[in-house]
Nucleic acid binder design. Structure first.
Lengths: 197, 197, 197, 197
DNA sequence: GATGAATGAGCGTTCATTCAT
DNA sequence: AATGAATGAACGCTCATTCAT
């Protein structure tokens, strides 16, 4: 699109190739020799743009962190909605969650695998969801019995997994997954049997 | 218990130490030098019992695979139960799932992280749950709209994550987690609002 | 002499070869590949005995530091001697200085070249000589006009240089050098000309 | 002074920066990237003016070699002087020696450190002094017992060292050092005790 | 007169693995 | 049943040097 200098182009290529390889083989197993080979450069060129292997990784994460900011608004306003809209709203929230993570499935996978960073990043996401859920709990929308932190961890775990399993492979779309998951978490998977539950 | 030869004892020690280290630092980052150091042996001794680093890993997985067989029965018979019991049964199923995985949290973590084996192992667990759920779907116990594979993947993802997050740290017990998760998946997290949802 | 294990022998060989190469080519220009090649080992073996290139260097210096302790007594007691003996005593001091440094000409050269350590080591030697000289100055043995630090630096510089130039090449002996230097520093190089000086 | 073309100016800047860095960190440890960075140029620009890293070093030495020619006359004529003047003359010679070397303390340090060139350059200086001293020996001015080569080496070693130690740090002046050293080498450091010496 | 971009060759270091004892 | 000693193969990284523009 915009005209890029040759150097910028090389750096971009390295980031892109690295992302794919990190996602496919993990951080440790990905060798710099592989990254540069796939980018059509030499090993030395890598160090024109990145201080170290860890550096390219962190630069990738910065991009990802940036994307996660958009999540902060997701689901924030369920409380303002009428009961009827709650379901569609929450469904929408899940679709957005899948969209944000599914947009960068590689980064999602990488970030949540990396020993040093996974905790920090996961916490960032979980926190947003848990806090929001607690809010909605005060307004009677979320059941009292729910431990919001456990629920938030569960939601993230499910999203993460389904992104890897179904979005990366293009077997399902964001909408399909969003609906399924919304349903599971909203109304459970069992039929409402008569009275007792 | 049973008297063991010195060799058997050494091998057992190596397996145990390896499990801890693999869980704590990951497969790649765990060095054989560390394993043997923690086991009080030399590196050469390692190769008396294992052909390679990958070999000790596979032997660990075999143990784990064995444990997973017990899962096959879990949840199988929900169909035979009265609606009233279904909930307690499924709750129990989750507790068992947590118990089996939580019994070997290290192995759970390792197995589901390892690039080459995680798919195979996860599939093994997911399959059992999905098949069983499909069965119960035919009997009207599980909602028709549910995609049982997605649900099964979700259940496993949640269990795996909560084991790592709350069981490994001893912050929650199998029972607490089992109940919370059962509730979420059985009846959702939203209050039954009026009629329509 | 004493029986050594194979490992000790290898380490000793590495230290010896490293010393020669460091002295001949300097620290930076000496490659580990050269050290191990000359010691008949592989690169990896080097790291059985030393943590790094810098480590083998420091271990060499420790040996040298140890030797320098013997210097502390050198020259200490000039004050107790009769004038007649002073000259022979100081000559002897120089011979000892040459002997200590000349015993390890390689280490002398290396230690006083290495950017990080040369100051520390030189200071150690200079200090001993300067302090001792100040003492003898109080007793009227050393001329008042002499700046003992400058003199000490000079003595060390000369010794160091002559060790490299004449001892390493075996062109002169410790005794020859000791006498010459003692004479220079004791009575100067000019003839006592009549009255004025 | 004279107007310089941009190119000459750049080359001069590179030589100047290189001299400082070589003196401070040594030849090997000084990177071309550092030289050009401090000169405000790019690495490629370096090669407009110098064929290689070694080349800039040699060009620096040429300047130094040039300066050393002035030394040739130093001390040449002691023989023509009356005994009374000898001392002041030789003192002056040392001051000049300090002045020439102290004028370019960086070059002095560098040149006499460089593995390949130090011998050649030192020899050049030592030679002049030794020859001149031999001359004066024939006229009875320098003691017969003195080995003039050893003495010359010593004089150079001392000068070199004191330049590095006291001139580079501005702790002493050329005059102070010149006098001290002249005294040491002329009349020794010991008091003339009675008769016997 | 100078730069942006890239490279070839090498270096120090690590690690799984082997083998003689 | 175990060890001391060693190695081959790679890996991350550096640096002097080049070349098209």
């Amino acid at each position: 699109m915009v005209s890029r200098t040759k150097g910028e182009e090389s750096k971009r290529k390295l980031l892109q190739v690295a992302e794919e390889l990190f996602a496919k083989k993990g951080y440790q197993s990905t060798k710099i020799s592989e990254i540069v080979a796939n980018a059509g450069l030499t090993q030395a060129a890598f160090y024109l743009y990145f201080k170290s292997k860890e550096d390219i990784f962190q630069q990738m994460l910065e991009d990802f962190d940036q994307q996660l900011i958009y999540l902060s608004d997701v689901g924030k306003k369920a409380v303002e909605l009428s009961p009827k809209d709650v379901k569609s709203y929450v469904t929408n929230m899940f679709i957005q969650l899948f969209t944000v993570l599914g947009k960068n499935p590689n980064l999602t996978k990488i970030a949540l695998q990396h020993a040093t960073d996974s905790d920090r990043i996961r916490k960032k996401i979980v926190e947003q969801i848990a806090n929001n859920m607690s809010n909605n709990q005060r307004f009677g929308i979320v059941k009292e019995e729910i431990d919001t932190w456990i629920a938030a961890e569960s939601i993230v775990a499910v999203t993460e997994r389904l992104v890897n399993r179904y979005l990366l492979t293009r077997e399902k779309t964001e909408e399909e997954l969003g609906e399924q998951v919304a349903q599971m978490f909203l109304s459970g998977i069992l039929n409402h049997l008569k009275s007792g539950d």
